[in-house]
Design a protein around this nucleic acid. Structure first.
Lengths: 172, 172
DNA sequence: CCGTGCCAACTAACTAGTTGGTTGTCCGTG
DNA sequence: CACGGACAACCAACTAGTTAGTTGGCACGG
């Protein structure tokens, strides 16, 4: 077998939860997708809910640190983050489900808090806080990226170019 | 009884679906919340899925046209749209659920298409298309509003002020 | 008597979580 | 080398509760 069982279960669960959410996911289906056994799921992760949380923990870092933050070139960072989102729609869906079905949990996740803290600090060191407080500017930029990724009518190249332009105007 | 039965069912279903989504919602609970009867739901709406669609149809207009579009004062429009979102989180949740559990349906809804079309036309008449194509500029603005509403760490007053400032820089 | 509505019980399928029994592998002990 | 425990994993059946959707019977107003 390719990887060890807990790993395969996590991956299969990520797919299932991304497609159907917590309430819509089926434990039997996760077991089948993992090529593993139902009892292994309960042995390793305890319950469906706990498994969902572990999946999020497992993937959140991947999503947060996929694109290295660049306080100097904020428009470029935004564009690269958008590209990652477009390339990994399952992870975006996973986070949306989690936001709806486990409200507030993500905001309290240490990895998330730490990553955001570092970004704010880097941004503050680069630009200072007077023109536009770093945390709030970051919020605008991240909101813009996720928002346009959601709305996403136009083709990716246009969206990326427009996003780059928009963030340039924000920081300019 | 306050309103007629179909109306009460739609309202109760909107609450239930907004809280728990399609898969998480329970028909019995909707009946209870409506102070109505389960068979009435099936008599009027056919199935749980169809009921969900009807709820969306019923509420989509309310959410799309909640804030009259203003092509002249785009920053003000964005701020007012944000305020509506903050004031009606259930409707935002309802749309997020629908986007996940019924992907693509919303984009094909006539009301949605028409509303967007009018906005784009008004924006194009106001600013022209050369500097920034109207449809893509609108996408950026709407994406920004929904994005910051999602991310939403800071307090509403700051978020609104920052959003106003951001959109001002976009259109300026 | 017909339409609207309520109540309660019912079916049939599904679902999270459990249990018992089995196989194979690794590892330390005699 | 042989033996036996510990462990990881599989399979299948099971429990107990839930859930969408149905049916039959009753009350009331026009």
């Amino acid at each position: 077998m390719a990887a060890d069982t807990p790993r395969r279960i996590l991956d299969a669960a990520a797919d299932e939860f991304a497609e159907r959410g917590l309430a819509g996911a089926r434990v039997d289906r996760i077991a089948e997708r993992a090529g593993a056994n139902k009892q292994r799921i309960y042995a390793y992760f305890g319950s469906k809910d706990q498994l969902f949380d572990r999946v999020i923990e497992d993937r959140i870092e991947q999503l947060l640190d996929a694109v290295p933050f660049d306080a100097v070139d904020l428009p470029g960072y935004a564009a690269r983050l958008l590209d990652f989102n477009l390339a990994h729609p399952e992870l975006v869906r996973l986070l949306m489900w989690h936001n709806l079905e486990r409200p507030g949990v993500l905001a309290r996740l240490p990895q998330s808090v730490e990553s955001t803290g570092k970004k704010v600090a880097a941004l503050r060191a680069q630009r200072g806080d007077d023109d536009w407080p770093a945390d709030r500017l970051l919020g605008q930029v991240l909101g813009l990226v996720h928002g346009v990724a959601l709305t996403g009518w136009a083709d990716p190249d246009h969206v990326r170019a427009d996003l780059h332009r928009a963030v340039s105007r924000l920081v300019g």
